[in-house]
Amino acid sequence: MMVAGTIWQRELVEFAQRRRALVIKLAFPLVFGIPLVIAAPPVYAAITLTMLIAIIGALGAGAVLTRERQSGLTLRYRTLPVTPGRLLIERLSIGALIDFLQVTPVLLLIAVRHPSQFAWWPALVLSVAAVLLIGNLMGAVASTLSDSPGEVMLYVFITLLPLLFLSGVFTSLTEPALLAVSRLLPFTYLHEALVGALGGQPNLLAWETLLGGFGFLVGAAGLTGRLGRRVLESD
């Protein structure tokens, strides 16, 4: 019997024990990923994969934390001798890591299919990690707004869709103001990295995208720690 003494170990043990969920979770991105990476034009593949990665992070965390709030587990967390910031960082970073494992086959497929675009791989890895962590954080914050998982998912979508639009995911942004806004959103860097790694024509250079992804990853980790009390100790 596997045992877990820390929050991140517990997440992994529970994930590993739910075999059916594990298979579905790993197979789901491939269902979209294989036809997109193999047959779709880079720009469309990048749009769909950016949405998929953003949604995977946000919905998973939102649903799990809402369920835990309903079952009373969140109340129990409040009695643990762990600061809420640390607890949330552990929970969401391991959640993001599991989500990363989930999209890894698609990322590998991109690398195999477009080996000449290797300059974009570091930027892609970092921006995927950043978007997954930010998505997990969005889901966690959304879970404090309602006790209903359906309503929480709605809040996630209502927030994500305009942000994806402002990131230039759906259409190229030409207005200078909108372009400036897009640089402040993590989805921009993921989208650009995907376009680059899929052999398309990105608007940013690989190093700019790498820097953006890294900045958002660090920023998301810091913000997660600060929001711990807000997410886990709000009534």
Partner: peptide, 9 residues
């Protein structure tokens, strides 16, 4: 607490 909340799986 009143609710015996656990990690059910």
């Amino acid at each position: 607490l009143d609710q015996p909340a656990h990690f059910d799986k």
